[in-house]
Design a protein around this nucleic acid. Sequence first.
DNA 1: GTGAAAGCGCTAACAC
DNA 2: GTGTTAGCGCTTTCAC
Lengths: 344, 344
Amino acid sequence: MSIPDKEITIYDIAKALNISAATVSRALMDHPSVNINTKAKVQEAAKSMGYRSNQMASNLRKRKSNIIGIIVGNLNSSFMSNVIAGAEKVLSEAGYNLIISQSLDNVSKEINIAQAMYNNRVDGLLVSLAYETENADHFESFVKRGIPLVYFDRVWPHPKCPGIEIDNVKAAYDITEHLITQGCKRIAHITAFKISSVAADRFTGYKKALEDYNIPFNESLVIKTDLTMNAGIDAAHQIMNMEERPDAVFVTNDACAVGCMQETKKFGIRIPQDIAFAGFNNDTEASIIEPNLTTVNYRGDIMGEEAARILIDRINNASAAAQPAKKIMQKSEIIIRDSSVKRK
Amino acid sequence: MSIPDKEITIYDIAKALNISAATVSRALMDHPSVNINTKAKVQEAAKSMGYRSNQMASNLRKRKSNIIGIIVGNLNSSFMSNVIAGAEKVLSEAGYNLIISQSLDNVSKEINIAQAMYNNRVDGLLVSLAYETENADHFESFVKRGIPLVYFDRVWPHPKCPGIEIDNVKAAYDITEHLITQGCKRIAHITAFKISSVAADRFTGYKKALEDYNIPFNESLVIKTDLTMNAGIDAAHQIMNMEERPDAVFVTNDACAVGCMQETKKFGIRIPQDIAFAGFNNDTEASIIEPNLTTVNYRGDIMGEEAARILIDRINNASAAAQPAKKIMQKSEIIIRDSSVKRK
DNA sequence: GTGAAAGCGCTAACAC
DNA sequence: GTGTTAGCGCTTTCAC
């Protein structure tokens, strides 16, 4: 396949083969009604002439942009990189282009991105919300226009938008229970400033475990932050200043947990003997920090693939999109590492 | 701005205001020849009617996709996340959409992505090569078609394609020199299997420093890997099996350095006393591993912005694109941390 | 199984 | 300063 001087169109192919452009178009799309020989001839000519289809023309005619938007808090994690890789695999096989934006976990940026994607007429949207986000009104325009939207990981419950996530309540329950069975009695919890869907579920799991083990919930052990690594450092100072220190800390993400651990160690606190730690997400950092961080693990690539598949299904399938959206729970597991094991 | 039932076009606005579609089009593009009052009326009507411009039609007419492709090895690093954020900022302000793909540092995936981007008629390309990549033939189709391509970070020298990078030779020289001044005499180097442009430059800097300090270059101290964290673990085993062990290791990226350090420590090696370590990139992990890793730091956001600006310039400006491409050097600095400081 | 023709919504000569 | 007109390259009825 050579690179011609001018862009080749289906008309050029039609002329060369003495057939109509309509037939060329059909042949290239592998339309069943085209004669098999014609099809072969067209495909061969397209190749030898260096034809590449013009998506813009096709998109205009079909009134589809062929673009899927994906909005995430931050690309900087192995989890997200895997989600993107998974989604990209499924979407590019289905002929879609993927445009990715990071909200940097900032609501107003998320709103701007949503607006831009709306104006760019994406055919569908994959969204993982910013930690800060407290409502999903800025995505209503998509819903109203019937543009399919699928949430993943950091989801928003919506009757028209499916969400794929893990059972955050259960995972948080399990990890809190684990800390309790290690003998911890004063378990602090570091969560988001604005406790929306995901953070709320983890908080719920935490409280439920305390309750089931007859440990009174203590508001003063709850620290609200923006969940960055730096916020973890601040949180460590708060912990060190507590009158009665906790014997364990469950942080709602790894980045913040790692920041907090590092800083706590500087005060001479031994982990896990003095304070045990647990995080959430199994980021790379969790297996680098010493001691390695107990956390919750789940597969990004599978989540990305699954979200993309659901989205494509809703795009192609108006009836699927009309169904009330269901929540999909993906498997997760807690990974117990040295940061939390008091007795061996 | 409400959401109308049917999609509003410039014809609808034209009809509502009793003017021609051409004028509406001009007014919306803020064309200077349109009367200022007309412009205001059009813009107001567009807003109140819930108009959104149809990029597909505009793109077809202008024969531009309005899409910029960006190809990176892996999104999973704070550096890359910053590059993307920087590039996105500049490109979205200029009205472009960004489609991002990760090669996962695999050449054949990179080739496929390049082909897909070519078929999708991106208006320009931003590329950071896979570690494996040994030539850039798969990007020649862009060059032939006059589609601007700008390399960043992991660049390929090409007379038509500018590259923005740091002075890898110098940075590697400086970091090797630092190890030497710490008293290290047997400095191992972990580099890529296929030593292309960037890895080669760092290797050169390493050898040059040795030479300047009269330390004979020793081929047996060079370890070739795929530079993943796992490869670092393997490399640690190779190091432990050496007859005469090195007293320092300079790894060409942080991920691999961190893997190698962790594994080395398991053998009871003290860092930096027995073996000093240095990496490259200042990934998050570098300040989490203990002891913290000496490395080379440079700003991703600035690199992304700069690359995007150069690209846009070449897209808008055929004469700029015709100039022989120059290499642009961005500032970098070595960050000395405990992994390499033998004497305080 | 193939062709003719219309049109997706926009922009840009070219007129006036 | 504004309007007329002609496409951009494709898909898709509707004929035959």
